[in-house]
Simulated scan of single mutants.
Amino acid sequence: MKIIAIEEHVLPDEVKQAWNTIPGADDGTLGLNPGVIGERLADLGEQRLALMDATGVDVQVLSLTTPGLNNLGHHGIDLARRTNDLLAEAVAGNPSRFQAMAALPSAEAEAAALELQRSIEDLGCKGAVLFGRVGDKNLDDPIFEPTFACAAELDVPLLIHPQIPQASVRDAYYAGFGAPIDLALSTFALGWHFEAGVQFVRLILGGVFDRYPKLQVILGHWGELVLFYLERLVMLDRVSKLQRPLIDYVRTNLYLTASGMFSPAYLQQAIDTVGVDRILFSTDYPYQYRPGNNARHFIDGLELTDTTKSKLAHRNWEHLIGGP
């Protein structure tokens, strides 16, 4: 059975250099990419293909790792073009193994939409990745409106990838245990997931899906905590005055993916909540990489029909993007 992993990361040297040299570009997460992680992020050739084979993944959908180009201001415009050209080159070199999600210069509203259009129409990207806030501007801010309008017009999905919370939030909730623990707590342990989940909820409350009812977004890590608090979140219907019940946006505008959290229990919760047709597969390479055919063993070991497994493994993604 073909396995397509849709949240698999890259970090080109040029982007890493920009994070290191442009003031304010590194939000603290560059420290999460040392040693072998950094080497795997930079590689788009034989090593990556070999590790895909080792875990059982047939196709990686490549995307820039967090925080993307969000902190680069106008510097992100040309860098987005070069990054997306690089991704397209990797796909062209191995079209049966790679696809790509576009990187966007989100700090520049019109430029981000234009780059999304170019990446889809000229380069063949399958969608784009967003990283939540630009500075203090959340995803429901007007700065993102051209991107949402363009994605809806082109009928392509947007992956909301976690970003580290802003400094004031980190200082208030995630600090005090020493630098390594503070960074871990504010990112992969907890902070990332609250941050991304809140950004999705803000899209709903900000009326983005009312303005673009066919817009599709993807949340990793089984819904970035949103999935497990829907019983409380739906109470927003008492005050929100949205066009539809909140649960309807979850079930019609949201796709979920695993991000390497190979949990049958979380998968079942996702199926119960959004239905089997809205769940995608991902390994969160290289952060959650495990050898030993781990991805394939997870799919094969599920107590589901072969038809359902094929939906999770590749068919839902292919349907979302309109073909293989």
Score class of each variant (00 low, 15 high):
223 G>W: 12
170 R>N: 10
163 Q>W: 13
158 L>A: 14
203 L>N: 12
199 Q>A: 12
182 D>T: 03
232 R>F: 11
212 Y>P: 08
171 D>A: 11
266 Y>F: 10
211 R>L: 02
229 Y>K: 10
219 L>M: 04
286 P>K: 07
267 L>N: 09
199 Q>Y: 13
287 Y>M: 13
179 A>W: 12
255 Y>D: 01
171 D>M: 09
194 F>Y: 11
283 T>I: 11
168 S>T: 05
180 P>C: 06
169 V>Y: 14
175 A>R: 14
261 M>V: 02
179 A>M: 11
181 I>K: 15
190 L>C: 10
216 Q>I: 14
184 A>Y: 09
243 Q>I: 06
281 F>D: 03
279 I>A: 00
239 V>G: 09
215 L>T: 04
262 F>H: 13
176 G>M: 12
282 S>Q: 14
255 Y>G: 02
232 R>H: 12
190 L>A: 06
168 S>H: 14
205 L>F: 14
166 Q>I: 12
170 R>Y: 08
281 F>G: 01
158 L>I: 15
284 D>H: 01
188 F>V: 03
221 H>P: 07
152 A>F: 12
198 V>D: 05
184 A>V: 02
149 A>I: 08
239 V>E: 11
205 L>G: 07
245 P>N: 05
260 G>V: 00
233 L>W: 04
193 H>W: 01
276 V>R: 00
289 Y>A: 00
230 L>Y: 09
267 L>W: 13
256 L>K: 05
289 Y>T: 00
212 Y>H: 11
154 L>K: 14
242 L>F: 04
175 A>W: 14
269 Q>P: 00
266 Y>E: 09
177 F>C: 12
184 A>I: 03
150 C>R: 15
232 R>P: 01
287 Y>S: 15
221 H>N: 07
240 S>K: 15
200 F>E: 03
165 P>E: 10
189 A>E: 07
248 D>K: 12
208 V>P: 02
198 V>W: 07
228 F>L: 01
190 L>F: 09
236 L>H: 13
236 L>T: 14
260 G>W: 00
226 V>N: 07
183 L>A: 12
267 L>V: 05
245 P>M: 06
231 E>R: 11
253 N>H: 02
289 Y>W: 00
226 V>Q: 08
218 I>P: 06
186 S>E: 05
240 S>A: 11
252 T>Y: 08
176 G>N: 15
152 A>G: 14
149 A>E: 11
168 S>R: 13
171 D>N: 09
241 K>Y: 08
284 D>F: 02
264 P>F: 07
241 K>T: 02
167 A>Q: 14
245 P>L: 04
219 L>D: 02
277 D>L: 09
225 L>S: 03
281 F>E: 02
167 A>L: 14
150 C>T: 08
203 L>D: 10
